[in-house]
Every structure is written in structure tokens, then in C-alpha cells.
Design a protein around this nucleic acid. Structure first.
Length: 989
RNA sequence: GCCCGGAUGGUGGAAUUGGUAGACACGCAGGACUUAAAAUCCUGUAUCCUUUAAAGAUGUGCGGGUUCAAGUCCCGCUCCGGGUACCA
């Protein structure tokens, strides 16, 4: 075998060895402590893996390998979140079954992952679209369906315990503490003893108010383009996260999961988690707990009372009107005859505005007076009731008490409609209440009867006390978190295991699972607008009852997959008790922060639920979580213009005497010269060096992404690009000429004829043509180089644009490492000589630093440390086995292939993964002297070597005799001499 | 608007509890080897003044402060990135 460093041979050899020897197969091993390292579930997209994906995978792989060397039994699995929209969209376009697309994508992912040399235990691979797997997703759904949340015991229980309670006690409605806790829910009243007299339908409808998986009419994010509803976290800026299609609010009957009952626990348990503070903050904000009071305002001439939620009950005396959301259920009812038309028009207007529009003009105030009045519960005064879309139907009660003096939104509304502004809190003299409201939760109460003189905080509790005593309201906690919509009107997802009998939703029996996804002819809604599953032929429960036609959302399968990895093949349970007990939970979870409010909240929710039912031993999925930064792409772009929008471009027509068009052509005018085209050009692309032609007109350019494979150092390959992107009929204008239909016409002006692009940092994505895959890098430099380089780029959690600048240095390092074992002619040069102090020092410095770095997830500095060590050993001409053997082990988590090869070359048996991480010995680092930096007034001037045991007084004497110090002293006596052992000497003059 | 993170040479970045700013690498410049190239190796490389060297001055986004000593701590800003958004 050639003894050059040949990454192609080495990496192929060891990847085969690992498979043949099942090196990474993990078993429950009671003898060793366990450690569970998990990467966030990838969705296998058609674009394959780009260089950003492996960043986290490499980090977790290094960590896993390190933990193994430290004697842990490491579980490090990988699998696929295989259901999802893109495969289905592709199916709609091409008719290809999403299962086929998914399978192909997974195959490609797997090839790409394999070539990087990860230590995944592939025998545990799971795919959410596999019936073996989704059987258990459906099983958990049934458990959710059969459970309710008991607010007294603070956990999920079987629905049976609720039925028992209802039989005995009935339900006193929304205020029933036993049933609702303090969570805002609408519950109908039920007298004791009535339960048994209800029909089955009535009973089931009632239970739907409690089931953790329930069917209810609610406002959903409807995406017409995708033909489905989306969860809140799947909507970004009013458009769908996948695809960017508009989303509107719609009232629909939907399956939802009652995540809101877990709000308090999801919030509190964050404190125990070793997750990044910013991620925990995101979850806290998303849950959005706020405490305050609900207050009832009786309507004038009515028995109805409008309930509002406020966090500022202290400002009750400052209420000058109420505002209802346009969707509030009483709007039509309370509107006066005179206002009817105006209100109806306004409600229609508000409803038709898409979410995006509503968000776009947050600043614009709109609303209408309902004509109704409410009675202020404390003052008895009449106050008007308005309708305004700044009030959200989905939060609180959909109604607010407006305190314009102390709430900026109420202030803007009051200003716009000339409503009174009543001050109830003293403001600093610098604050002008005519200009803006005083929203601060501080100050003394005024104009507020019994609250006068109290501080805001005291006033809040005093008021709540007062309201409760008088029966006008009560203290209340609200959460921003909404229940999660669970049904999707799509094909490629888990069928919901429910059928309908006489209008009642009935669950399948557990032994009837999995409910298989049926085959259909087209992946589109039916003619009658039902979801695609409506197309399935003869798909009925027991041949007669309709199944639920919506499927589960993408996050269903990913909400519990960490459990399945513990025991993936188990046919009788989601995982065996033994495996669940041994592996417990994820010790280190690695993934992007974009999952903060979606996946990471749902997986915590399901974990807590399964824990409540006693099915698993832990109530949190992951102890520690690290976010890796995003690797962005560098896009290449060309400025573009609709040709007719430039003065350089003309359409010239010639007419005969009769006025008929006899000849026409298109032309470009440059420097007074005319260039003709026979047919109409589609676009005008402008090179960065040709912008001066537009100086006088300054048009608004648009931009087009150019596939980065057609760009070399900002020079665009025009024929390649125009063909691949279908711009055959476009003009490409450069400073010195232009391309049209594959031909170049020179202006002959001596200016550059190159088509120059400009660069922009963007998210790496197929649609931006800026994707860099790891494949070519692995091919050219090898997986070990890729692994080291991705770590060398910088701190793991930092986002950065991809650039291969610098990869050479890392590759050179591996070649230099190789040179410690083989000389330039490929001769083995390792010897058994006794290592010397300097060599041991270099090695142990490295052992210590790399160990610390991995524990701190500071992988970039480890790579530097390796480089320093190899450079030092090179300088020392050290080829000693005693040193190199340990070095190979320390390097192996980062660059496993070369480490295996060198390990074997050293004559060691088996895989380097079975070795032990060398133990750091501080003795080798003990120094007896130190070259002290000598500072004068804090500025470094010189260095003097002293023994580390040197007496400070002796040091001071020597320092003051030093030539350079004497020069700076200029004959003066020093005021002070600071001596810090092992650090510094500072002379103060 | 609010919450979080960040700003250090031409570039990526390093710098323990405050203690030699710029490790390591890229790039660049010069040199060695070679017929030549690649590869490899050696030297230099924050900025400014200076022919060079020595020596010095400046220097971690900006303005203040604490300290013998500040990239690091405190106060006030600017800009960039991410999240979130009428949440009452």
C-alpha cells in the first residue's frame, strides 16, 4: 500500500470496516453509564444535504465518539421525519407517489451521510412514514383522545375519572374549579345526576370539551394554495413557512390537541433544563403567561355581561370604553339599529383582510361604534362599546376594557375616534399625556376612589380583592399559547384513527392499529372539497363507517421519535420498559433554533403527557440542548430590468402612408450607436460593470439569482446561465458589449466585456441556486478534512456564510499529521524512544485542551490545538510511538478515518473507537520559571524570566534594576509595584 | 416596538476568575527545492512615523467611567443578525 496520505482509500476502507464489524451498534449495557446524543430529525428534502446540515451532525458525532472513549455507552441514532408537504406537492405536480419520492430522497441523504463517516447506529433508523412507526404515533393519539387533564392533580388522566365525576357531581360551568382549574375554557353547565340521562351523542359532545385530542370548531390558519390548515408555528409573517403562500383566518371543525392545559408546566419546567437562555426565552414568550383579572361589564338594557381580561385591574377607573373583536360572538346581537349597517360593513371588511394585511398596517387604527353601552361596574357610568380589529378574537375573551391614558393601543384608538382619556396614575412631569399614554407599571394611583395613593402593584391586588368580594370579576391567568390544530387536509401524513358513527367521532381500538394510509388516484382534494383521503375507494371502518379524512401534521411523528430509538423494532410497545428505563432521556440534543416554538414545545408536551400516564419515566425529552448556527449561502445575482423600462431600449415601428405598420424592430442605444434585434427581448440583464449606462435614469432594478455553478469569481458564464435558466431571449449588457441569443456583440469601446454578478448572503436553498453540497468537498479533500473544516469555521452556535477559503489549511494539517508517521518517501518513521519533557508537554497540553473544548462544545479551538501540537512535534522531530499513540486517540473523534488508519499502522488491534481517551497528567505541564511581562503603568514594555517560586521582593528588586524599566522611571521612584504570581509585574510611576 | 445574540488585522477567528490583544489558519509578499509547474519547506505580515533597524505612537463599533491593569466589568449610544409582534 502506498504510504502517501490518500483520503479516498483510507475513508472507503474504514467505512467498510465499520459496517462489517458493526462498530457503532449499541446495546443496553448495564455495566457502563449511558449517554444519549441526538440530532434533530431531518426532513429528507429533494435538494439533498447541503454543507450546513452536517455542521451539527459533525459536532454531535465528535461528542459521541469522545463520550465513547471516556467509557460511556453511547446511543447516537439517526432517522427521518419522512411525512411532509414537499413530497406531496411534488406528487401533485408529477403524479409520483410521495412514498417513492421520499424513498429516493432518503437514499440520497443516506449516501451523503455515510460518506462523512458518522458513528450512527443505523440498525436503529426510524422513518415516521413507516406503518411500524406510525402505528405508535396513532396509538399516542388514541391515548390523548382517551385522556383529560385534571387541574387538581395537575396531570393527564383517563377520561373515565372525569365521567365518574360528572355522574356524581355534574359540572357548574366555566367557573368549575375542579374541571377547569384557572385555565380559560368554555364548559357548558351540567346539573348533578343529569349525566346519565344524556344521549350518547350529548355525552360525547360534552367530553369533547375535555379530551386532550378533540374535535372543535375554531379559527384556523387556512392556506388556500396548499389546501390545508397550518399550526401557528407553521405561519411566518402571515404566509406559510413552507412555500410562502398567503394564509387566512377561517372557522373550521378541526382536530386539535389541548396543549394549553400544559402551559404552566411547560413554562415552569424550563427552569430545570440546560438549554440556551435565548431558546428558553422564546418558549416563555410563546407560552406568554400573563396574570390579571377578568372583569364583567353589564350591558345597558340587557342581562348580558361582557367579560374582559386585563393585566391592569388597577386602572379600572380609567376605563372610557370597551372594545370587542370583530369576530366576537355578541357583535351582531348588541349592535343598535342605527349602527347596524356601519358595523356589518366593518365586520365584513375586517374579516376579509388577510393576516398579512392586518399585520402590515399595525399602525392604522380602524373600528366602529356598536351603538351599545355597558355599565361600569364600580362607577355605574355608561361607557360606549366599540368594535375594533386591534382586539384579537383568539386571546382572552375577545374583548378589552380600554384605558387610553395607560395603554398605547387604547390611546391610539381613543385619539382617532375622539374618546375620553382618563388619567388614573400619576406620571412624571417629563411625560406629556397629550402626546402618549403612560404604560409603565409604576406610579401612584389617582382619581380612583379607594385605590388613591397606592402603588400600581398594591393597587392591582387591592382591586382584584375588591372585584372578587363584590362579584364583579376575579383574578385570572391567561396564556398566549393556543391549542395546536392537529388535522391537515393532506394525503402524506398519518391517518387519524377515528371513524364516524351517527355523527359521533369514535376511536379505533388499539389492536386495530395501524390504520394504513390508503392508495388514492390523485393527490388532490375531491370534487366536493374533501381532503385527498376522500378519494380512497371503499375506505370505511368495518366497511360502513366513514374514517376521518384529515391526516396528522408533520410534527406528530417527530414529537416522540427520541423514544422509539431506544427500542425501534418493538412490535408490542412504543419501546420496552427496560429500554425506556435504561436510556431515560436525551442527554445532548443538537439542532437549529428555528424549532424553538414548534417541535421543541410539542415534544415536551407529548413527553409530559406520556409521563402522566406512567408510560415513560421522564417528563422532559432532553436534558441539555445546543443550537448550531445556520450556514448561509453566498448567492450570485444579476440586476435585471424589464427592457421597456429603460430609455436605452426602443421599439421602433415604421408605418406607410396609410398608417399601417410595415416594419418594426427593437433596438438598444449605447453611446449613440444603435443595435437592432429582430424579435422582442424578454429581459435585460445588467452587468455590475455596465451600471453607468443607467446613471441618468436610475431605474429600479430587480434581481435574478444565478446558479453558482455558472459563476467563477463574479464572472457569469452567460451562454450556460441563459440556457439553464431559460433566458435564451434576454439581453445581457456588459460595459463593453452585449450577449443576445448566444452571440456577443462588442461595442468596441475598450471596456470590460465580462458579465459581472454581485453577491449576497442568504439562506442556502435550492430556489436561490446557492446550495453547496458536501459531496465535492469530500471527494476532493476527504471527509476528515470536511469534518475538521466545518468545526474550524468558528463557534458552533454562530451563523456564518459558507466559504471554502481556508479549507487548504485544514487539509495541510492532516498531511502534516501523516508526516509524523511516514516520511516524504513513505517510510515508516515511528520509533520506540523515550519521550522527552517538551514532547510530553506538547501532548498533554493538547489532551487537556481538547477534553475541555469538547465538554464546552468549543470545537473550533480544538482544531487549532491539534495544529499547534503537530507543528510543535514537527519542530521537535518527534516520531515517538508513546506520544503519537495518544495523539491519534485524541484526534480520532474529529478525524476518525485517518485515526483508524494510523492506529492500525501503529500495530494496535481493533478500532480506535475502543481505545480510552488519554488521561491528562498535569505534572508534564509544571513549569519552574515564567517569562513575566513587565508593564509600566499598565503598558507592556519588556519580559523578564523568574522562577515561579521567586520571592516577590526579589523580583521587584530585579525589575527595578532592569535597563528598560530604569529608562521609563526617568529617575523617579515607583509609586507601587504590582506582582501577580505567574501572570504579570506592573510598575506604577 | 419588545426579547435575545453580535461588532477584534485584508479574511475566518483566538484570548481561563480583568493580567503580554491578534493564537491557529487563509490570503499576500519574499526565498529554497524543481528544466518547469504542482506539492513541500523556510521567512515576514495590525496600523502609523522611520531608508532600515532600534525605539516609539495608535489600536478590539462609538462616548464616558471603575481599576495598578479593561476586548473582558459598569453607564450611555450606533450599527448588524435572529426571534416575536396590536396578547389587553
Amino acid at each position: 500500500m502506498s504510504k502517501e496520505y490518500s483520503h479516498r482509500d483510507i475513508e472507503k476502507k474504514w467505512q467498510k470496516y465499520w459496517i462489517d464489524n458493526q462498530t457503532y451498534k449499541t446495546k443496553e449495557d448495564k455495566e457502563r453509564p449511558k449517554f444519549y446524543v441526538l440530532d434533530m430529525f431531518p426532513y429528507p428534502s429533494g435538494a439533498g444535504l447541503h454543507v450546513g446540515h452536517p455542521l451539527g451532525y459533525i459536532a454531535s458525532d465528535i461528542y459521541s465518539r469522545y463520550k465513547r472513549l471516556k467509557g460511556f455507552n453511547v446511543l447516537h441514532p439517526m432517522g427521518y421525519d419522512a411525512f411532509g408537504l414537499p413530497a406531496e406537492q411534488y406528487a401533485i405536480q408529477t403524479g409520483q407517489h410521495p412514498a417513492i419520492t421520499t424513498k429516493e430522497n432518503i437514499k440520497r441523504y443516506r449516501e451523503q451521510l455515510d460518506q462523512i463517516g458518522f458513528c450512527y447506529d443505523w440498525s436503529r433508523e426510524v422513518k415516521t412514514s413507516d406503518p411500524e412507526y406510525y402505528k405508535w404515533t396513532q396509538w399516542i393519539f388514541l391515548k390523548l383522545f382517551h385522556s383529560w387533564y385534571n387541574p387538581i392533580s395537575q396531570k393527564a388522566e383517563s377520561i373515565e375519572t372525569l365521567i365518574n365525576h360528572l355522574e356524581k357531581n355534574g359540572c357548574s360551568g366555566a367557573g368549575d374549579q375542579f374541571l377547569s382549574g384557572n385555565v380559560e375554557t368554555e364548559i357548558p353547565k351540567l346539573e348533578p345526576g343529569v349525566w346519565k340521562t344524556l344521549s350518547e351523542k350529548e355525552q360525547q359532545d360534552f367530553l369533547m370539551h375535555f379530551r386532550l385530542a378533540y374535535l372543535a370548531e375554531s379559527f384556523v390558519n387556512w392556506c388556500p394554495a396548499l389546501g390545508t390548515v397550518l399550526a401557528n408555528d407553521e405561519v411566518k409573517d402571515g404566509v406559510s413557512e413552507r412555500g410562502g403562500y398567503p394564509v387566512e383566518r377561517k372557522l373550521m371543525m378541526q382536530w386539535s390537541l389541548r396543549i394549553t392545559v400544559y402551559a404552566e408546566r411547560l413554562l415552569n419546567d424550563l427552569d430545570q433544563l440546560d438549554w440556551t437562555e435565548s431558546l428558553k426565552d422564546s418558549q416563555r414568550n410563546w407560552i406568554g403567561k400573563s396574570t390579571g383579572a377578568s372583569v364583567f361589564f353589564p350591558l345597558k338594557d340587557s342581562t348580558k355581561k361582557i367579560e374582559v381580561f386585563t393585566t391592569r385591574p388597577d386602572t379600572l377607573y380609567g376605563v372610557s370604553y370597551l372594545t370587542l373583536a370583530p369576530e366576537h360572538e355578541w357583535v351582531a346581537e348588541i349592535t343598535s339599529a342605527e349602527q347596524k349597517q356601519a358595523v356589518e360593513e366593518y365586520v365584513a371588511f375586517a374579516k376579509n383582510r388577510s393576516e398579512r394585511e392586518r399585520m402590515a398596517d399595525v399602525k392604522k387604527v380602524s373600528g366602529v361604534f356598536s351603538g351599545a353601552f355597558a355599565i361600569h361596574p364600580l362607577t355605574g357610568k355608561e361607557i360606549p362599546v366599540w368594535i375594533g380589529d386591534y382586539v384579537l378574537a383568539g386571546y382572552g375573551t375577545g374583548a378589552v376594557m380600554a384605558v387610553p391614558a395607560h395603554d398605547s393601543r387604547d390611546f391610539a384608538f381613543a385619539r382617532h375616534f375622539n374618546l375620553p382619556i382618563l388619567q388614573v396614575i400619576e406620571t412624571p412631569s417629563s411625560h406629556d399625556l397629550n402626546e402618549a399614554s403612560w404604560d409603565e407599571k409604576s406610579g401612584k394611583l389617582i382619581n380612583s376612589d379607594f385605590l388613591n395613593g397606592l402603588e400600581v402593584k398594591e393597587a392591582i391586588s387591592a382591586m382584584i380583592h375588591h372585584l372578587e368580594a363584590k362579584g364583579f370579576g376575579k383574578g385570572k391567568t391567561n396564556y398566549r399559547l393556543r391549542d395546536a390544530i392537529f388535522g391537515r387536509q393532506r394525503y402524506w401524513g398519518e391517518p387519524i384513527p377515528i371513524y364516524y358513527k351517527d355523527g359521533i367521532a369514535c376511536p379505533l381500538k388499539e389492536e386495530e392499529l395501524p390504520l394504513l394510509l390508503p392508495e388514492i388516484d390523485k393527490y388532490l382534494p375531491t370534487e366536493t372539497g374533501e381532503p385527498p383521503l376522500g378519494r380512497a375507494k371503499d375506505w370505511k371502518y368495518q366497511g360502513k363507517y366513514e374514517y376521518e379524512l384529515s391526516t396528522m401534521p408533520g410534527w406528530a411523528g417527530s414529537s416522540w421519535y427520541f423514544l422509539r430509538y431506544m427500542d425501534p423494532g418493538n412490535p408490542t410497545a412504543l419501546a420496552s420498559e427496560e429500554a425506556l428505563k435504561y436510556w431515560q432521556q436525551v442527554d445532548l440534543y443538537l439542532g437549529g433554533s428555528e424549532h424553538a416554538t414548534g417541535h421543541l414545545l410539542y415534544v415536551r408536551f407529548w413527553t409530559k403527557f406520556l409521563f402522566d400516564l406512567g408510560l415513560i419515566p421522564v417528563n422532559e425529552p432532553a436534558k441539555k440542548l445546543i443550537n448550531q448556527g445556520m450556514i448561509q449561502g453566498m448567492s450570485e445575482k444579476l440586476k435585471k430590468l424589464e427592457p421597456s423600462r429603460s430609455k436605452l431600449y426602443n421599439v421602433v415601428g415604421q408605418t406607410n402612408e396609410k398608417g399601417d405598420l410595415v416594419d418594426s424592430y427593437y433596438e438598444l442605444l449605447i453611446d449613440g450607436k444603435q443595435y437592432k434585434f429582430s424579435s422582442r427581448p424578454s429581459d435585460l440583464f445588467i452587468s455590475e460593470n455596465a451600471l453607468h449606462y443607467f446613471e441618468s435614469e436610475k431605474p429600479e432594478f430587480t434581481a435574478s439569482n444565478v446558479d453558482i455553478s455558472f459563476v467563477e469569481k463574479a464572472v457569469v458564464n452567460v451562454p450556460g446561465f441563459s440556457q439553464a435558466h431559460h433566458y435564451e431571449n434576454a439581453i445581457f449588457l456588459t460595459a463593453g458589449g452585449f450577449w443576445y441569443k448566444g452571440d456577443f456583440t462588442s461595442f468596441g469601446n475598450g471596456q470590460s466585456e465580462e458579465m459581472i454578478s454581485y453577491q449576497e448572503v442568504e439562506k442556502m436553498s435550492k430556489s436561490k441556486y446557492n446550495v453547496v453540497t458536501p459531496d465535492s468537498i469530500v471527494d476532493h479533500y476527504g471527509a476528515d478534512t470536511l469534518r475538521l473544516y466545518e468545526m474550524f469555521l468558528g463557534p458552533l452556535e454562530q451563523s456564518k456564510p459558507w466559504s471554502t477559503q481556508g479549507i487548504e489549511g485544514v487539509h495541510r494539517f492532516l498531511k502534516r499529521l501523516w508526516r509524523l508517521f511516514y516520511d516524504a518517501d513513505g517510510n515508516w518513521i515511528v520509533n520506540d524512544n523515550q519521550p522527552e519533557k517538551a514532547e510530553l508537554k506538547s501532548l498533554h497540553k493538547t489532551i487537556r485542551k481538547v477534553g475541555e473544548d469538547i465538554e464546552n462544545f468549543s470545537f473550533n479551538t480544538s482544531v487549532s490545538t491539534f495544529m499547534i501540537c503537530v507543528n510543535e512535534l514537527m519542530d521537535l522531530k518527534c516520531n515517538k510511538r508513546a506520544i503519537l499513540k495518544d495523539l491519534v486517540v485524541v484526534v480520532s473523534p474529529y478525524a476518525p478515518h485517518i485515526a483508524e488508519e494510523l492506529w492500525q499502522a501503529l500495530g494496535e488491534q481493533g478500532s480506535v473507537t475502543e481505545a480510552n481517551f488519554p488521561v491528562f497528567n498535569p505534572e508534564f505541564l509544571v513549569e519552574d520559571s515564567f517569562s513575566y511581562p513587565i508593564s509600566i503603568n499598565g503598558k507592556h514594555r519588556t519580559n523578564i524570566e523568574f522562577s515561579l517560586n521567586a520571592d516577590p521582593k526579589e523580583v521587584e528588586k530585579t525589575v527595578l534594576k532592569d535597563e528598560i524599566v530604569i529608562k521609563w522611571l526617568e529617575g523617579k521612584a515607583p509609586k507601587k509595584v504590582i506582582f501577580v504570581k505567574g501572570k504579570i509585574v506592573n510598575v506604577v510611576i
